[in-house]
Design a protein around this nucleic acid. Structure first.
Length: 108
DNA sequence: AGTATGACATAGC
DNA sequence: AGCTATGCCATAC
């Protein structure tokens, strides 16, 4: 049975699972979505994500923020994360080792 | 339909 | 350890 509403919808559903104060990487969501190669597409999904999707909790593998997150750039991206208590490194990247989301075992 | 673009990832140097 | 080049997939024109 397929509840497929498009690749984006599937990715959005995963992004919604990210707890407050934690972050996930594009590749991580791609992997959870079933295809590790969808990392790039995850970015597109975030760009087109509805307001109920915490797209600010998605960062790249290096913990780097998105320049296209908003017109204001990564500044607003960082602000939203800091408001959730997400720890940052001196270089401005997210301290993934402290707040990387650990999804429950992917149920088959 | 084919080409070009892009909120990434991985492998080489 | 950081930068460059290549790959991959879905969307837009």
């Amino acid at each position: 049975m397929s509840m497929d509403g498009g690749t984006f919808a599937r990715i959005w559903a995963l992004a919604r699972q990210i707890p407050r104060g934690q972050v996930a990487t594009y590749g991580q969501l791609a992997r959870l979505a079933g295809n590790p190669r969808l990392a790039r597409t995850v970015g597109y999904a975030m760009a087109a994500a509805p307001p109920d999707v915490p797209c600010h909790r998605v960062v790249n593998r290096s913990g780097g923020l998105s320049a296209a997150f908003s017109p204001a750039g990564r500044q607003s991206h960082r602000l939203l994360l800091e408001l959730e208590g997400v720890p940052f490194r001196p270089d401005g990247t997210v301290a993934l080792e402290r707040c990387l989301w650990r999804p429950p075992f992917p149920a088959p």
